[in-house]
Amino acid sequence: MKAICTEVPDRMYGEVKSLVNSGWFRNEDDLILEALRRFLDTHKVELMEQYIREDVEWGLHGKD
């Protein structure tokens, strides 16, 4: 499991805190994980394209 450290604009962080404080999420981690999951859900094509390019390299030049 990787930990990601990043800077969040104050206003955005305020919205995060507000959602957590009002009980929509257990904590900030849960909210960020959910946001990331949704991002990945909607960006699978781009991710897939990157993976396919890596696959092309492995397929043509890999050692195993």
Partner: peptide, 15 residues
């Protein structure tokens, strides 16, 4: 894991 998909498997068939 070493993760690969259909495209990689197809191209790997050449080498």
């Amino acid at each position: 894991c070493k993760v690969h998909g259909t495209i990689g498997i197809i191209l790997r068939a050449i080498r």
